[in-house]
């Protein structure tokens, strides 16, 4: 992966050390690539933070909510990866250095972090882990062989995915009919709903009217145009 870069730095062709007259030339900055990556990284960190917050809550969210969140995060991670791949050449060719104005002494730690090219120990560890997991011995195989093996692996994955989709189409995972029955009958998907879900009961009367009769024998006057009888005072 390419080294990320901070906007405060730029690739410049005409560098003057005179601070007053110095004007930074930002034309060489691959701003389009950096902006695209920054946006995707911001999304990714946001959703990762949300997952961490969800998991640290006393009451765990529902499993499907977590799964949905994880799906979003994985999609964003893929988007970051593909963006990085897309701008691979540009970013690889970009050299990063600080501007003269940068407060080197007061922010040395920040500067060294930003300019660091060596992987941090945990990143090294991840790379090592994935190399081991691939089952390829890089000491014995050369680059060409490895690329070949990876290509084969990709093909195999693609084949498996196709087969899966093909099989998935054959079965019906919803409703009461099998896929075969559905195709034969030619009827479109019928939505089966329980009666209890559609049944909305209506009230035929007001409860108070009934109770008035039960407790006092007062009958509700139906379609009478006369003045209602004086109700019993409380």
């Amino acid at each position: 992966m390419s080294q990320n870069s901070a906007p405060m730095m730029s690739k410049s062709s005409n560098l003057s050390l005179n601070e007053d007259t110095y004007k930074a030339d930002f034309s060489g900055v691959p701003s389009q690539a950096l902006d695209a990556i920054r946006m995707r990284l911001a999304q990714l960190t946001h959703s990762l933070r949300k997952i961490r917050e969800d998991l640290s809550k006393a009451e765990l969210p529902q499993w499907y909510a977590l799964q949905a969140q994880l799906n979003v995060t994985l999609t964003q991670l893929m988007s970051v990866t593909s963006t990085l791949e897309h701008f691979h050449d540009t970013l690889d060719a970009t050299a990063v250095y600080p501007l003269p104005k940068f407060p080197t002494t007061s922010h040395e730690a920040l500067l060294t972090t930003l300019l660091r090219k060596k992987y941090t120990p945990e990143v090294d560890e991840w790379i090592q882990q994935s190399k081991e997991a691939s089952g390829l011995d890089s000491t014995q195989l050369d680059r060409k062989n490895i690329a070949q093996i990876l290509q084969k692996d990709k093909e195999c994955t693609k084949w498996a995915l196709d087969i899966f989709n093909e099989e998935f189409e054959k079965y019906n995972f919803k409703g009461l009919q099998t896929r075969k029955e559905q195709l034969e009958s030619g009827s479109p998907d019928v939505e089966y709903t329980l009666e209890s879900q559609t049944r909305k009961h209506t009230s035929a009367f007001v409860v108070e009217d009934i109770l008035n009769f039960v407790y006092r024998g007062e009958e509700k006057e139906e379609k009478s145009s006369e003045e209602p009888k004086a109700t019993v005072s409380q």
Binding site: E208, D209, L211, N212, Y215, V232, S233, Q234
Partner: peptide, 14 residues
């Protein structure tokens, strides 16, 4: 909860 007046079985005063 129904209106309590509907469950009043007292005679009342008229």
């Amino acid at each position: 909860v129904p209106d309590r007046k509907s469950m009043d079985s007292r005679m009342g005063f008229e």
